[in-house]
Design a protein around this nucleic acid. Structure first.
Lengths: 253, 253
DNA sequence: AAGTGGTCTAGACCACTTT
DNA sequence: AAGTGGTCTAGACCACTTA
């Protein structure tokens, strides 16, 4: 064995590295079909499982996507930009250029309302909302679809004692949404906290979002506070990480 | 085949589901060793590859971690809370309870300075900083270690024409860090934008962060703006997603 | 020394998609 | 009908960890 440098590397990693290099070089572009298991077996003289392992590396990295019966394809990404503050008025900094391109325009992001129910509040939620253990919550579930594909699941929790009999407990919360209704009740949210995490999805999340294997989810938990510092709403969101860029702005100090 | 419900599911998924249920039930806690390949082969009468596949499911989900020669273990998570605004003074909302527990206390988060060099600015960075194509940038690389394990890689870019001859171009940027030095130059950052994404790591990122397979990275790109709206610094950060919760606060409207 | 996970072979059958 | 990826078997050798 000569001083090969790349000598001591598993075959499947060598094959995977070769495919990745071919993608980087532009040999295969987004949406293109990659060499399949049979191609790799023939080209590299390996067993089926080894070729599978190589293709599995690209899929686990989120670079490629297997379509049963069709082949393995280079993935394409189109990012949605989600701003913490939905401020349309342009200020001086909004002019600044962004790192990651995101074409929010010319694409349809539709909201799919799922349900508004009255349920016992999960204990973690009850703590944040300042409710007694076992208190009931108004739970509103929504789903966001981009070009028909689900990209965000949202579950919103409010104190059921507060929302009972209001439009917040109804499927259609009326003009301005639930924040306008909370304002009607003298509980207008004036400040938000968002906590952001990321991890691999549970099988159920992957199913509900139609996630390609190798795609993480981003978890955003937004808490809305009234002027007197009380939390009035907790909104747990699960995002397709391959579809979103989150954006936050804040002042120094 | 009776109306079994779970009848038509691959064996490896059935085995994986059984292991996951056992973890949820508390049968196996964080750090515990799971049944190995040999155990699963014997218990379920399957081939080695099938047992491996089942354990691979848990690893891909980030629930378990294989240690070569030792076994497969339930992962344990300890989250660091990272605030967009590092405001120590408690305001009324800081009292609010958080969803995810994070023990920043009693753990050592140390900064490991890597380098400060003068390099051609990557074109995406040059655009954001308003530099000419091919202009040079001051590039500062750092690494954050939690209990000795790297959890964050940061690369900071500034206009080299601005920083030349200042402490910013030196390894030690002096008291108050580079923001204090920028203030000395009349370029104090007063506002920040952070863009946040998540994806699976490249092999190089996984290696540099020592990531367990099944762990995504969070990418945070922070741009610092002066009062006149010019970008003075771009900081690209790569975070171990299993180690961090990001937190942002902002006012309505 | 024994046990563990990591890699690899050479077969096989299936469900699925495409032509 | 042909080709594709998904699942599965029954072996094998290796490097590594633990005791």
């Amino acid at each position: 064995m000569p001083s090969d440098g790349s000598g001591r590397q598993p075959k499947y990693q060598r094959i995977a590295a070769e495919l990745k290099a071919a993608i980087r070089s532009g040999r295969y572009g987004p949406g293109d079909r990659l060499p399949g298991e049979n191609d790799l077996m023939a080209a590299h003289g390996v067993a089926r499982m080894t070729a599978r392992q190589a293709l599995g590396v690209l899929q686990a990295e989120g670079l490629a996507e297997a379509r049963k019966g069709a082949g393995v394809f280079v993935r394409e990404f189109r990012l949605i930009r989600r701003r913490g503050i939905q401020r349309l008025a342009a200020d001086v900094w909004s002019q600044g250029r962004s790192i990651w391109a995101a074409d929010t325009e010319d694409r349809e992001l539709v909201v799919d309302f799922l349900s508004a129910t009255d349920e016992p509040a999960p204990s973690a939620i009850a703590v944040v909302l300042g409710l007694a253990e076992g208190a009931r919550a108004c739970v509103r579930r929504r789903r966001f679809l981009l070009d028909g594909k689900p990209v965000l699941l949202a579950t919103s929790y409010l104190d059921a004692a507060l929302t009972a009999g209001t439009a917040i407990a109804e499927p259609d919360s009326g003009p301005g949404g639930i924040y306008a209704r909370l304002a009607d009740l003298g509980r207008e949210p004036v400040r938000f906290r968002e906590e952001v995490r990321s991890r691999m999805p549970t099988p159920e999340e992957a199913d509900r979002l139609g996630l390609v294997p190798g795609t993480p989810v981003v978890l955003v938990c937004r808490t809305a506070y009234t002027a007197d510092g009380h939390a009035v709403e907790v909104n747990e969101m699960t995002l397709d990480a391959s579809a979103y860029v989150l954006e936050y702005e804040f002042d120094a100090q």
